[in-house]
């Protein structure tokens, strides 16, 4: 059981690492949104799954309720993350920010 928890946590940490590196390396802010919005969401999903499994070690009704509450966080993040991403993209669009393309780099 502990191995499963460790596996989930390391997977989540790896996703977070990918998100952080992507945020640093991407050329413009539209493409920075891709790792920021999505890899973090999946990282939260993996890590909360691992923690919820660890929480169910000493099985009781309270522990079950607590794990349900943790998955409420995941549900909320899955619902709110596209909305937040969309609102940032919309703000950039209305400000007239152009996106990075390959041709621009050559010229």
């Amino acid at each position: 059981m502990d191995i499963l928890v460790i596996l989930f946590l390391v997977t989540g940490l790896f996703f977070f690492l990918g998100g952080a590196v992507g945020i640093i390396r991407m050329p413009d802010f539209y493409s920075r949104l891709h790792p920021a919005g999505k890899l973090d969401t999946l990282g939260i999903f993996a890590m909360v799954t691992g923690l919820a499994i660890y929480n169910l070690h000493h099985f009781s009704f309270d522990a079950l309720l607590l794990s349900a509450k943790m998955f409420l966080i995941v549900f909320f993040v899955f619902l709110s993350s596209p909305t937040a991403t969309h609102s940032i993209v919309d703000a950039g669009m209305r400000a007239g920010l152009r996106h990075w393309t390959k041709k621009k780099r050559k010229g």
Binding site: F16, I23, L33, D40, T41, G43, Y54
Partner: peptide, 25 residues
């Protein structure tokens, strides 16, 4: 740009959620 800073703040926030759970454990 300002929106880049916003992305950074958002990423820090989503990591903080997990960090709070870990502190709880």
């Amino acid at each position: 740009t300002v929106l880049d800073r916003l992305i950074g703040v958002n990423a820090i926030g989503s990591k903080t959620v997990i960090l709070l759970l870990l502190i709880g454990f």
